[in-house]
Design a protein around this nucleic acid. Structure first.
Length: 874
RNA sequence: GCGGGCGUGAUGGAAUGGUAGACAUAACGGACUUAAAAUCCGUAGGGCCUCGCCCAUGCCGGUUCGAGUCCGGCCGCCCGUACCA
């Protein structure tokens, strides 16, 4: 199997140790071989009794170019996939494309290329790069979400959710992106701006489709505890996003009704502090604020100001609390005869709770600041456990209620309950659990998305498209030269007859938020050709995903939506479980130095020549400023293209480098020196194994009596098996890399030695290096293994090596000898040496003996195989 | 503000409470070479009175025979998030 096609270039005559590993020949060869032999194929439903493992990396958006973040992501996943396969699992490791979305439409508008053509051409490019990286993917399961064979099933899922009451149409205020001309989910609004366009978001009322994720809020929150193999911080972020808070709704009667509003409802988590009320404040968007603004110019001015200041400047410049006194007053449920002013306040959010609060300055920092600013009273109602209320600031901790009528003397917790009981008795409010999470608006006024399968009929309303008319396929002949949604402009597509009454009706022209597409792709991968959205036999066998790998940026949105969707699919019978991802790993970013030339222009790494004292431009020799090491981004031009790296160094080098050094969850720095080092290691390992292969070691028989040198080699090999296995199980791939370096160094030492029986041990070490490095550098591993054992099974087909327990115990151990916890010498003993013998040896160690002179040993501590510590007096 | 994470050589990092700095990168010295690259061998936390000792894992304290690791309190950095009532 040697020769150029399997990756060896003979620099000289046969068995020349200077032979170079030729990745350019080797990598395509083994990729073809894996495919030919079906090494990575799995069935939708594997044979009974075979354990299964589903490893999935977040599928990419086909932007056109694979970037280093993808390389890292998919390499991590591939290590897991190859390792699990070697451990005897049937491994599902699919790949697909999150292919709907705005950039395709932008390309259509800007360059006149159809979104589908743009998308599929990008997919072709990226698929080629992925394949060149040698990932052990199930390419036969590939799909793109923009294909009707995928999104048609999504339409079915939606219709079933509609029938189950999990999807509904609702008039609502939406976040409108004026640049993209689309609706955004709250999660897609960042600092008041569209997450993609960056445009300031406007409020607009539209009829929209919603998925009722709030119905699952309690379940989504509770189940977080069970996700033990998720990072703690992701669970925390989701819990906060769901935002459960217990409290009460309290009604305050308006002394004089305004515009038909005769009372204000407030949400509070602190009903115990109702006696500390000083004012009531409503959001600028509150209906009452609008009513007051309608007749009062100053109020209108304030409301307008709040809106215009919005989120941008104010947030940055100052967090100052500002308000406007409406002149209206409200009564108090617990204090008849006393009334409080109603203010419009800029810090009250219409979107949270009821859009109105009662202000209790002594218990809330914001209310306190507001009261001080507008000179409102600050009644003190909570005495901290160890003193008197501070008065000069808010106190929100526990304590005893004072100045609070019937609540006096109760602690804050009991007061909360008592206040709610009383509110319910007098019908002025009730206990309530409030959620921050809101329903998921999924309608988008876009072309390049999954059509929402509904037909609007003047008599029948919103009618589901019948199953036999699915999929509702996007028309291809659309125009992008008009603003708004191309589907809306299409001359014929939307005109259909009502499936119910047959009269002329209109198709829904909105498409789904692309987060819908990525909320169930993992399920479709288990049976990508099923006639129904899922095949229960396949889904039940594979799900949940055993190991999901992706970026932390999806901690909330994608992962929460996918969790909800799984539950919704469970309710509609498409799945049999609630949680889609049993294990989640969030990888760190790939960073790189950034460079700017004298006029501040960002430069690509390849335009820069690194010198020991700095850097210069390659073309002009001009000065270059080396900037921060930060996330690779096009804007800073600190990117390195994976295809260029594969071209120059090969896939295995790229894979090995992203696994080396940095733990996978942390950010890593991409450096030219690091890649070159990884490439050097590959060549060195190859030469070493080639030397062993050429030496006849592989024919050497196991010796009857194992001499020291061979024994050391064997123990190093088996220790490495154990430690690499442990590292791969624990996702500490950088440690696995280090252990393989060590074994390589040990083998290099052994190659220089001659001792009886060493050949056999060297052959074992070389073979083990091939198998242990195969998940990380699969092509090199195959080439090396083919040299050692021509014609035998591939590394990709072999079981994971087993460490011999007998060889994991060292023959001899070095024991550290301490006096009072300080290292004073070391001794060599057998690992199972008797304690008194070890202690005697330790005491006899010359330096130890010297220092123990004239001192009394009070205590002798012996940790077998590790340490001896003498505690001395005097 | 709140939540999470992290502070170890020049750098990335390793280390079940048990010899701190594995492994690698960069550096330096040597061999090979006409030379360079590649390769191979070697050196390397700081200090001192150098067969040894002292200091050293952000700082201060504690628990322990023994602390990078556990506990308490500071300081700093990073990420996320926020007028959430």
């Amino acid at each position: 199997m040697s020769g150029p096609s399997s990756g060896i270039t003979q620099a000289g005559h046969e068995q020349d140790p200077g032979a170079q590993y030729d990745f350019r020949a080797s990598e395509p060869h083994w990729q073809a071989e894996w495919t030919r032999r079906g090494c990575f194929d799995v069935e939708d439903v594997p044979p009974e009794g075979q354990p299964t493992y589903y490893v999935l990396e977040m599928f990419p958006y086909p932007s056109g170019q694979l970037h280093m973040g993808h390389v890292r992501n998919y390499t991590l996943g591939d290590v897991v996939a190859r390792y699990r396969r070697a451990r005897g699992y049937a491994v599902l490791h699919p790949m697909g494309w999150d292919a709907f979305g705005l950039p395709a439409e932008n390309a259509a508008r800007e360059r006149g290329v159809h979104p589908a053509a743009w998308t599929f051409s990008n997919i072709a490019t990226m698929r080629e790069t992925l394949q060149r990286l040698g990932f052990s993917l199930n390419w036969d399961r590939e799909f793109a979400t923009c294909e009707p064979r995928y999104y048609g099933h999504q339409q079915k899922l939606f219709l079933d959710m509609m029938a189950a009451g999990l999807a509904e149409r609702r008039e609502s205020w939406v976040n409108w992106d004026p640049v993209d001309q689309t609706v955004l989910a709250n999660e897609q609004v960042v600092d008041g701006r569209g997450w993609r366009s960056g445009a300031v978001v406007e409020k607009k009322q539209l009829s929209q489709w919603f998925l009722r994720i709030t119905r699952e809020a309690p379940a989504l929150l509770e189940a977080l505890d069970g996700l033990e193999r998720w990072p703690e911080r992701v669970r925390t972020m989701q819990a906060r996003w769901i935002g459960r808070s217990e409290g009460a709704r309290v009604r305050f009667p308006l002394m004089a009704p305004e515009a038909g509003i005769d009372r204000l409802e407030v949400f509070t988590t602190r009903p115990d502090t109702l006696f500390g009320m000083s004012f009531l404040a409503i959001a600028p968007e509150h209906p009452l604020a609008a009513a007051v603004a309608a007749r009062n110019e100053a109020a209108a001015g304030f409301v307008a100001e709040c809106r215009s200041l919005g989120t941008s400047e104010e947030a940055i410049e100052t967090a100052e609390k500002r308000g406007f006194d409406t002149g209206l007053r409200v009564g108090h449920p617990f204090m008849p005869g006393i009334s409080f002013p109603v203010w419009i306040a800029n810090f009250v959010l219409m979107e949270y709770g009821t859009g109105a609060i009662f202000g209790c300055p002594c218990g809330d920092a914001r209310d306190y600041e507001f009261a001080r600013k507008y000179d409102l009273p600050i009644p003190l109602v909570v005495a901290p456990p160890d003193g008197v209320p501070p008065g000069d600031r808010a106190y929100d901790g526990p304590g005893t209620l004072i100045g609070s009528g019937f609540l006096d003397g109760l602690d804050t917790e009991a007061g909360r309950r008592a206040a709610i009981v009383r509110l319910e008795e007098i019908d002025a409010g009730h206990g309530v659990v409030n959620w921050r999470l809101r329903d998921w608006g999924v309608s988008r006024q876009r072309y390049w998305g999954c059509p929402i399968p509904v037909i609007h009929c003047d008599t029948c309303g919103a009618v589901p498209v019948p199953d036999d008319q699915l999929p509702v396929v996007l028309p291809e002949d659309v125009r992008f030269d008009l603003p708004g949604n191309p589907l809306d402009h299409h001359p014929t597509w939307k005109h259909v007859d009502c499936p119910r009454c047959g009269s002329p009706a209109r198709r829904e022209t909105d498409t789904f938020d692309t987060f819908v597409d990525s909320s169930w792709y993992f399920a479709r991968f288990t049976a990508p050709n099923a006639a129904t959205p899922t095949s229960r036999a396949a889904a039940d066998r594979w799900l949940p995903v055993d190991q999901y790998v992706g970026g932390i940026e999806h901690a909330i949105l994608h992962l929460l939506y996918a969790r909800f969707f799984t539950r919704a699919m469970h309710r509609t019978g498409h799945l049999g479980l609630d949680e889609p991802f049993a294990g989640l790993f969030t990888q760190g970013m790939v960073n790189h130095e950034s460079y700017r030339d004298a006029d501040g222009t960002w430069l690509y790494p390849e335009e820069v020549e690194r010198r020991s004292n700095g850097a210069v431009r390659r073309d002009t020799g001009g000065a270059v400023t080396i900037g921060r090491v930060e996330k690779m981004s096009k804007s800073r031009r600190n990117t390195v293209a994976p295809s260029a790296i594969i071209e120059r160094y090969g896939a295995d080098t790229a894979r090995w480098f992203v696994l080396s050094d940095s733990p996978p969850e942390r950010d890593m720095e991409w450096t030219e020196a690091g890649v070159a080092g990884a490439a050097r290691f590959g060549q060195r390992l190859f030469r070493l194994v080639a030397t062993v292969a050429a030496s006849g070691d592989t024919q050497a028989a196991a010796p009857d009596i194992v001499p020291d040198a061979a024994d050391r080699m064997r123990r190093a090999t088996h220790r490495t098996i154990a430690s690499v296995t442990e590292a791969l199980d624990g996702f500490t791939f950088n440690v696995a890399v280090a252990r393989l370096h060590e074994l390589t160094n040990a083998l290099a030492d052994a190659v220089r030695e001659t001792a009886p029986g060493l050949g056999h041990a060297r052959a074992e070490a070389a073979r083990t290096l091939c198998l242990l490095s195969a998940p990380m550098m699969p092509h090199l591993a195959e080439t090396m293994l083919a040299l050692l054992e021509p014609g035998a099974a591939l590394a990709a087909e072999r079981p994971w090596p087993e460490a011999d327990p007998a060889l994991l115990v060292a023959r001899q151990v070095t024991i550290a000898v301490q006096i009072m916890g300080k290292l004073r010498g070391t001794i060599e003993t057998a690992p199972d040496e008797a304690a008194d013998r070890v202690l005697a040896l330790a005491e006899a160690e010359p330096n130890v003996q010297r220092l123990l002179e004239g001192r009394r040993i009070v205590k002798r501590i012996h940790v077998p195989g590790r340490i001896v510590n003498f505690v001395v007096a005097g």
